[in-house]
Write a protein that binds this DNA or RNA. Structure first.
Lengths: 242, 242
DNA sequence: AAGTGGTCTAGACCACATC
DNA sequence: ATGTGGTCTAGACCACTTG
């Protein structure tokens, strides 16, 4: 055991400490998303540990979804969530085309208690509230209400929503420096209000699936609260348990 | 590298081959569920590999949910699925009490095409079909239709259903030697037929969550097809994505 | 005290990707 | 040819559980 590096915390394995250290460097932006981090050999030498120990640490970060390893090429910092993960809960008639997005409204408003709790911010903190419709093949399929805590997302308060891209998360990264790394979705069923139903071209009271999302950045801060509603009959999801 | 043991398949790592071999011995019943398998030291010596290689193989089996390792105690073959995993999709008012089960009907009937496909058996194979109500705090909460392929579950064809336990999977193990190891649940949405609604004490046409399950044994054979219906408003499920 | 799994080392060689 | 991650070895020592 190298004597110059002692485990800071008793009861924490060396590889766990290494993983935490590397995680901090990634979060700090030392290696931006998509770039390669140094080779395991070099990292092991830097930290004066055996190769196997460093590999164990990197394995941990892979499990946490922070990095990806590719045989022969290197180890890369993962991109933020960027696909259209909300659509995975629904089966709309079409091919795998990307959904269009139309912003219906945007205002600044104090976070009500449930949203404040979800975002872990003080009750009444000012937020940006978006109303948004998503369309597939010209047909509206999802109606969303999105809350973004305001000091952080100030850059979005005045830009022209008509020019926004169809996917928000990449814009969060470029315009606000917020990288969505993880999200928790809570699924339930309900029925549409008249206003919601109008947007989705469905009758009022129609049954809908409700997905309540909390999105987190690399540091683990909750940075988005979103509620999405879609036709319950289009909902489907598969889970494997063991 | 020991010369007496060559990898059977080119391109398959030694630890993967070891894992497959151990898996086969577990599936064959050499170590029943709940019992400990030999120590990693002994297994490594038996197979003439280094300790690290055997550990890697055991790690694989842990990932597959086949074994559990406990520091200081040993490595154990996991029990079959035995909880009440269907209830995790629903939030019924009560505490964490175990659900009661009432068998409403049982008959032998040829598998229709969708069920045959689900169970991967020939179209028209004879099956046991169960109708079953599950109750929590005296209130009916789930209505289930269960299909079991018949040569395998013959032991259940005549036994008194009134004496069956509230959980089926442990009975599958004791009476039929079938160990449910993995299950795939497909979640959808629909509405109750008049007959279903009557059983659940809900109005006909009431919205319901539909969980279509396929259960598999250790060998990976599909051994149960089940459709469960419950009040859509009681449905809730949480997923984390990364 | 004895036996188990968990951590760590310091090497060697292999397989894959790129230039 | 070079550099990357993946596999494998043969040890040592530590931490936990049980008689």
């Amino acid at each position: 055991m190298p004597a110059d590096i002692v485990p800071i915390e008793p009861g924490v394995s060396r590889y766990a400490a290494l993983a935490a250290a590397l995680r901090a460097r990634i979060v700090a932006g030392e290696w931006p998303a998509g770039t390669a981090i140094p080779a395991e050999q070099q990292l092991a030498a830097e930290h004066k540990v055996a190769l196997g120990t460093m590999r164990r640490a990197l394995e941990l970060l892979v499990e946490q979804g922070l990095i990806e390893r590719v045989h022969g090429r290197g180890t890369f910092v993962r991109q933020s969530l960027s696909g259209a993960p909300m659509l995975r809960f629904f089966r709309f008639g079409d091919s795998g085309e990307a959904p269009l997005s139309r912003i219906l409204g945007r205002d600044r408003i104090a976070a009500p208690a449930p949203v404040a709790r979800q975002l872990d911010i003080a009750n009444g903190t000012e937020c940006l509230r978006l109303k948004r419709l998503r369309l597939l093949g010209g047909q509206p399929c999802l109606y969303e209400e999105i809350w973004l805590p305001l000091p952080l997302f100030a850059a979005l308060a005045k830009s022209d929503t008509a020019k926004w891209p169809d996917l928000l998360y990449p814009m969060f990264a470029t315009k606000c420096g917020v990288h969505v790394h993880r999200a928790r979705d809570e699924i339930g069923f309900g029925s549409l209000t008249a206003a919601q139903a109008r947007q989705l071209a469905l009758p009022a009271g129609h049954p809908c699936a409700i997905v309540n999302r909390t999105a987190y950045d690399l540091q683990g801060r909750a940075i988005e609260a979103r509620t999405s509603r879609g036709d319950a009959h289009a909902f489907h999801y598969t889970v494997t348990i063991t």
